[in-house]
Simulated assay, not measured.
Amino acid sequence: MSEARPPFPPFTAETAAQKVQGAEDAWNTRDPQKVSLAYTPDSVWRNRDQFLSGRAEIVDFLTKKWERELDYALRKSLWSFSEDRIAVRFQYEWHDTTGQWWRSYGNELWEFTGDGLMSRREASINDVTIAEADRRIFGPRPTGDRGQDIDLR
């Protein structure tokens, strides 16, 4: 069974945007196993101050993440792309077990293999406390909102 994940490099503006939306959709499922299949078996990550290697570590990381970051909802936005690389900015909202809501802001750098799997992911993320009334991300992005940029604040 092929693990190829279209669209494939070299990216165009259209295919890079498709890749970003596909990643957003997958992460919003909060299914670590499903998400991990977009990465090469030996994919390397830097996520904040953590370094991961391989799908098993990715699944473990995401499982723990979504046990801690409750009602997680994400938006990604294409920032830039080249032949086999994509840069995105993102925001996601979640609450902790005490009910405190957070908005997490970040940037990611992605590198892909020829079969469309991500071989490298570097993420820098900052968290800001928000009131529940200040939330603006509610579940997966509605189809009509796809392609819309996300506000800086």
Rank of each mutant, 00 (worst) to 15 (best):
S104R: 07
K19C: 05
R68L: 07
R136S: 08
T12S: 14
V35Q: 06
T113P: 03
E111Y: 05
S119M: 09
V20H: 06
I130A: 02
L152A: 14
T12A: 06
R48W: 06
F11G: 03
A13T: 03
L70F: 00
R103K: 14
E122K: 13
E108K: 06
A73S: 15
R48S: 10
F112V: 04
G116W: 05
F61S: 11
W110T: 03
P32F: 01
R135K: 15
F138I: 04
S77T: 15
L117P: 11
I137N: 08
T97K: 15
R46F: 00
P9M: 10
G54P: 02
I137T: 00
L74M: 13
Y39W: 13
W102P: 01
K76M: 15
A4L: 04
Y39K: 08
R85V: 07
A133S: 15
W94V: 00
S36Y: 01
D31R: 06
G99P: 03
L70Q: 14
R89L: 03
D25K: 10
L109M: 08
D149E: 13
W102Q: 04
K19L: 05
I86Y: 09
P6D: 00
R103P: 00
T97I: 12
K64R: 14
R103C: 14
R55D: 06
I125Q: 10
Q100A: 05
P140Q: 11
R48M: 11
R55F: 04
K76I: 05
D151S: 11
I137S: 02
V44L: 02
E83S: 15
F8R: 06
R85W: 02
K34P: 01
T40M: 07
R120Q: 08
L52H: 03
S124E: 09
M1G: 15
N47D: 08
V20E: 06
I58F: 09
E3A: 05
W102S: 07
W94Q: 01
W102F: 15
A131Y: 05
F112T: 01
R135Q: 11
E132V: 03
L78T: 12
A131E: 14
E57Y: 02
A17I: 02
R89C: 09
R153I: 07
T15R: 07
Y105C: 03
E93V: 01
E14W: 03
G54H: 08
G114K: 14
Q100C: 04
A133N: 10
I58N: 12
I125P: 00
D42E: 14
A16R: 08
L62R: 11
R5T: 08
A26I: 02
N28K: 07
T12C: 04
E111Q: 14
W110F: 15
K64G: 14
P142E: 06
S82H: 07
E69N: 05
T63E: 13
R103I: 07
D145T: 06
E111N: 10
G116K: 09
Q148W: 04
T97D: 14
R30K: 12
F81E: 04
F112H: 10
R46L: 05
S77I: 10
E122N: 11
I137K: 13
N47T: 13
L74Y: 09
K65D: 03
D145A: 12
